[in-house]
């Protein structure tokens, strides 16, 4: 049965979800879960919270299945995920290290595990990741999105509401900024 589902495109799956098909939801979930978690981690430092938010996203998708008209499923999922991350970060009760706070984000003693802490501790990319964290938000966002398997330039442009050309130049700027940071970094990577 799942065999049939895997060959269906996102829009067909949404059609099945409208017919109360839970398997179709599961298929869509498996298709994008990893990418969405990584994407949302660009905006949130708490990775386990990111996973909760993505589960919430699919619950909302299910609850609104009969009322919502979705044109591009992929763009919808990523845009909705980003909105959830931002809403979540702006809630005053939750003490989230939101990335707008570049300096504090780097200097704060982190209580829970976060994406770059976990990896950087073991990897030689530690400092480069810290520098990525210091990039202006849009540059960091585009650079990290460009590394997500499910997204191409056109997808990124659609999700961020910018032109494909802007995606390209922003990516270039991000790399240039990082190169400059490396040069001026006291540790000399």
């Amino acid at each position: 049965m799942e065999l049939n589902y895997r060959v269906l495109n996102d829009e067909d799956l949404i059609g099945l979800i409208k017919l109360n098909d839970g398997l179709a939801l599961e298929c869509l979930f498996n298709r994008y879960y990893q990418s969405l978690c990584r994407f949302i981690a660009i905006h949130l430092k708490d990775y386990s919270r990111a996973e909760e938010l993505i589960a919430d996203l699919f619950i909302k998708l299910w609850d609104n299945r009969s009322t919502q008209e979705i044109r591009s499923v992929k763009a919808y999922l990523f845009i909705a995920a980003k909105n959830m991350a931002i809403n979540h970060a702006q809630r005053p009760k939750n003490k989230i290290d939101y990335c707008e706070d570049y300096e504090s984000a780097v200097e704060l003693p982190h209580t829970g595990p976060n994406p770059f802490d976990i990896i950087s501790s073991k990897e030689a990319y530690h400092e480069m990741m810290q520098l990525i964290w210091l990039l202006p938000e849009r540059q960091r966002e585009v650079l990290l999105m460009s590394r997500l398997e499910d997204l191409d330039k056109n997808n990124i442009a659609a999700i961020l509401g910018i032109s494909v050309r802007t995606v390209e130049t922003t990516l270039y700027q991000a790399i240039k900024t990082l190169q400059h940071m490396v040069k001026t970094s006291p540790n000399q990577l």
Binding site: E26, F29, N30, Y33, Q34, C37, R38, A41, I42, Y47, S48, E51, E52, I54, A55, P115, F116, I118, I119, E123, Y125, M128, M129, I132, L143, L144, S146, R147
Partner: peptide, 17 residues
């Protein structure tokens, strides 16, 4: 490479599902 590895970590996908 650093950007690729950023945020790559085991997820609790089964738990979330």
């Amino acid at each position: 490479e650093a950007a690729e590895r950023y945020g790559q970590q085991p997820t609790s996908q089964a738990k979330s599902w």
